[in-house]
Computed example of a mutant assay.
Amino acid sequence: MREMISLLSEAMNRIHDAMQSWVGVAMSDKELHFFVVGMIGMLTFFALFVLVKIIQQLKFSTTIIAFIFAFILMVVFVFAIEIQQAVTQSGNMEFADAVAGLWGFIVFFIVYAVIAGAFYGLFKFLRWGKRSTSNRKPKKARKKKSRPVQSAVYEEPKDEELKVEEQEPIKYRSDLRK
């Protein structure tokens, strides 16, 4: 793990020197980080934007995006633990420990995915079985009766409308539909 961090820091030093000679202006570390992290962040954003748009078209898009997000957080968490072990000397800082931790997350997620997939498949199978055993005919779409549009403005009833005509009492519910 220490060797890996040493290699990464050496690579960053070389990039730092190359950028300063390429731009031709001596930049402080803050200015260099501003540009490098800004550019890498935007490239990452655009790549992830395209990836998420593709994932949205898939059936379990929320699960896939949640897994990717959780995996990224686990990578940060695992390396933070390893760096903390190096700083406090409470353990050995090894890359193999980080890989083992990430494998733990992947294995637990696979177990979850298998169990969730089994429940999902069972649910779909039971719903499919109910549909195929029923001998119901498909319902015909009912035509909605158009109702007269009522005005939102209150109008006084005319004398003719005040007269109530005698009607036969309604005996059956089917009479209401007439």
Rank of each mutant, 00 (worst) to 15 (best):
A80S: 13
I170M: 00
F71T: 11
V52P: 05
L176S: 05
A100D: 14
I5T: 05
I115S: 01
F35C: 09
E165N: 09
M1W: 04
E3C: 04
L8F: 14
S6W: 14
D159I: 15
I40P: 00
V114A: 12
I54S: 06
K59W: 11
F49E: 08
N92A: 15
K144M: 12
Q85S: 06
Q167D: 03
A152C: 06
V99A: 03
A11C: 05
F123C: 13
L162C: 12
Q89D: 07
G104V: 01
S90P: 01
W103E: 09
L48W: 09
F109W: 08
R142C: 06
I83A: 09
K158H: 11
A26Q: 11
M1V: 02
F49A: 05
S134F: 08
G101P: 03
V75P: 04
N92E: 10
A118Q: 11
N13A: 14
L48Y: 11
F67P: 01
K178H: 05
F34P: 03
A11D: 08
M42K: 10
F123W: 14
L8W: 12
K124R: 08
V114G: 09
T44V: 03
F105T: 07
R173H: 14
M4L: 00
V36L: 06
L102E: 03
Y112L: 02
E31H: 04
E82Q: 02
R136Y: 10
L48P: 01
D175C: 00
H16L: 07
E31L: 06
G91C: 02
N92F: 13
F77A: 09
I40M: 04
R127I: 15
M19A: 10
W128Q: 12
N13C: 07
K171L: 13
K178I: 01
G121Y: 04
G101H: 05
F60R: 03
R2A: 01
I54K: 07
K171S: 10
L162A: 10
F95H: 01
F77Y: 12
R173I: 15
K143T: 07
K137F: 15
F119T: 08
Y172H: 08
E3L: 03
S21A: 11
Q167R: 02
R14Q: 13
A80P: 06
A141N: 05
Q150M: 02
I83H: 10
